[in-house]
Design a protein around this nucleic acid. Structure first.
Length: 562
RNA sequence: GCGCCCGUAGCUCAGUGGAUAGAGCAACCGCCUUCUAAGCGGUCGGUCGGACGUUCGAGUCGUCUCGGGCGCGCCA
């Protein structure tokens, strides 16, 4: 349990009876202690008492909690400022070591099933950078939800049915004919020109390819390429769900029948319409075209109902912001069939533009400036790709700075964070595999055997870490700042999960790296004083654990050396 | 016209209704005989687009307004 939570519980104990939610927050200024609570001001109204008096009452009751709180002060309107006892910090560090790669993770409190759907591109060509961002955000969001204790299932919805697919397959068939017959058709330009030029020459001479199956083969090939491309940046799905299967298995038809029964449909000009306006949409929407083919909307409703039937309590669907117009009709469809549409949450990811050599290039299909995910990924590498695309909030449009992402120095936050991790590891290499004698390096000698014994102690003996604090003021400040930052991690995961903004983890890691680099500069870990050495090695390892756990959520590597 | 999203330092962005709004980059000045200088410290930089309101307290909540992006297909 975190020191913050312990303090919160103590205050709640004192206030038993009042229902007020006690908030214990980290302070911004050192003069305000380590943490503060505004509970006196919140209570002032309820109790009709002066907040300052309430604060002083609480102060009197908590200031003698040895081992948890070392100092309490009441400030201006009624803030209660608390300095945490070093022992509480030492005890918290034990938890980092005992939980290891699960540190920060919520104890699977709910095991509530959540299905996160993301990317879900048409298998009609290359993924553009917007899909890349959806992949980075969707995957990291799913990971952060896992860390927050949910039972998460990652899914890609393959839009392999409908008008776009029909057009692609038509293009494929004609191009196939052109290549086979070595003739030119009267088709002037293909809708999917780039895709056709890229794939059809590769497929045309494959054994078994015919005019009839070239379209299907093309689809499979594109899908595989999308899969392997996403795999290259650690985006892997539990399931690839085919839209076509909804039709072949009759699920779309079942939903259609139910919608008809619900009375929210009508026929008009040969098509079947859904009364979306009754659900506050701007207009009604077509479910079945006049030629009898179903629209994406029908399939989408059927797909989401299928998700609910698979016992998912929460559905999170990640869409590009250009699709927000579809939200109301989809939710309306669920609502019309009696499903609770509040379980469906759509995260809209805003567009990406690219900055190259200082110039911003806007994505435009017409201008031919669509930025390809593969090109960017190959150019900057998976780690930078994941970091930059997830960093800012999904609701914000973002500018991807290609030149910055390619930089391999301190300007690039990815390297800055990874370097902090590598530095931690490097210190341990020095201990177990030193260059030069320990005398020269002025370090106590530690055998491998001793070191592994220390690791056992780190997970259960808080007293070890008390030696971190018996140092000069500068060292003390740097050390304490780092510890407090490490201990923020579980809360950071929770906030990131609740606000559906996995990019928070990236910002957190940047701060953690800063605090570690500062600690490293001020405090020499490899010390002659064995007690200090032992304590600082433990803290360094706790930092390493935290950075690695955070990077894992973002799908970014944590290198041991750079 | 209607709907969704965004306006915070020159640039890219943080900022769970709390105290004096923060980083990084860019610009300038410093720091390597010892754990990786892929690092650290310092200086410069702001009417949080604007107005009104709610509150003990607003960058954060509400209404309005200005600016920008996206959407309003029998495409997805």
């Amino acid at each position: 349990m975190s020191y913050k939570h312990k303090i919160k519980l103590e205050i709640e104990k004192i206030l038993n009876g009042t229902k007020t939610n006690v908030q214990v927050e980290k302070t911004k200024l050192k003069e305000h202690g380590d943490v503060a609570t505004n509970v006196a001001m919140v209570l002032a109204k309820e109790l009709k008492k002066n907040p300052f008096e309430i604060a002083n009452d609480i102060k009197a009751k908590i200031e003698n909690l040895k081992g948890l709180i070392s100092k309490v002060e009441v400030a201006k309107p009624g803030f209660i400022n608390i300095v945490v006892d070093n022992l509480a910090l030492a005890e918290s560090l034990i938890e980092v070591h005992s939980q290891k790669d699960k540190f920060g993770y919520a104890p699977s409190k709910s095991k509530e099933k959540v299905l996160v759907e993301y990317v879900s591109a048409n298998p009609t060509g290359d993924l553009h950078i917007g899909h890349g961002r959806q992949a980075a955000i969707g995957d990291s969001l799913a990971n952060v939800l896992i860390a927050d204790g949910y039972d998460v299932y990652k899914e890609f919805y393959i839009n392999d049915h409908g008008e776009q697919m029909t057009r692609l397959k038509d293009d494929a068939r004609i191009k196939y004919w052109e290549l086979k017959e070595n003739k030119k058709s009267d088709k002037i330009d293909f809708e999917y020109q780039i895709t056709i030029d890229k794939y059809i020459p590769l497929l045309v001479n494959e054994p078994g390819t015919t005019a009839d199956n070239i379209g299907e083969k093309l689809k499979e090939r594109i899908l595989n390429d999308q899969k392997s491309l996403l795999g290259k940046c650690n985006v892997k799905f539990d399931n690839w769900f085919s839209e076509t299967s909804l039709h072949t298995e009759g699920k779309a038809k079942d939903v259609l029948e139910k919608l008809k029964e619900s009375g929210f449909t009508y026929e008009h000009e040969g098509a079947l319409w859904f009364k979306a306006k009754e659900f506050k949409d701007t207009r009604d929407r077509v479910l079945i075209r006049s030629d009898g083919r179903p629209t994406y909307l029908l399939a989408d409703i059927a797909y989401h109902i299928n998700k609910i039937e698979r016992k998912n309590k929460k559905l999170i669907t990640v869409w590009g912001a250009d699709h927000h117009g579809q939200e109301i009709s989809l939710k309306g469809g669920l609502h019309a069939l009696g499903y609770d549409d509040s379980s469906l949450e759509i995260v809209f990811v805003q567009l990406v533009s690219l900055k190259k050599e200082g110039q911003e290039v806007k994505m435009s299909k017409r201008a031919g400036t669509v930025v390809n995910t593969e090109e960017v990924l190959n150019e900057v590498g998976s780690d930078a790709f994941r970091y930059f695309l997830v960093e800012s909030h999904p609701n914000n449009r973002m500018v991807f700075d290609l030149d910055l992402a390619k930089k391999q120095d301190k300007d690039n936050p990815v390297y800055y964070i990874q370097y902090a991790h590598a530095r931690c590891c490097s210190i341990f290499r020095q201990i177990t595999n030193p260059t030069g004698s320990s005398e020269e390096r002025n370090v106590s000698t530690v055998t491998e055997k001793e070191l592994s014994k220390w690791f056992e102690e780190y997970a259960k003996t808080p007293e070890i870490f008390m030696n971190l604090f018996a140092v000069n003021k500068e060292e003390y400040e740097a050390t304490k700042t780092l510890i407090l930052k490490i201990l923020d991690f579980p809360e950071e995961i929770s906030l990131s999960s609740k606000s559906r903004s996995p990019g928070r983890i990236g910002n957190y890691l940047k701060e953690l790296a800063t605090d570690f680099h500062q600690f490293y500069t001020v405090c020499r870990v490899l010390s002659k004083d064995i007690k200090i050495l032992k304590a600082r090695l433990g803290l360094t390892w706790a930092t390493k654990i935290t950075i690695a756990n955070g990077l894992k959520i973002l799908g970014i590597n944590a290198p041991e050396s750079m």
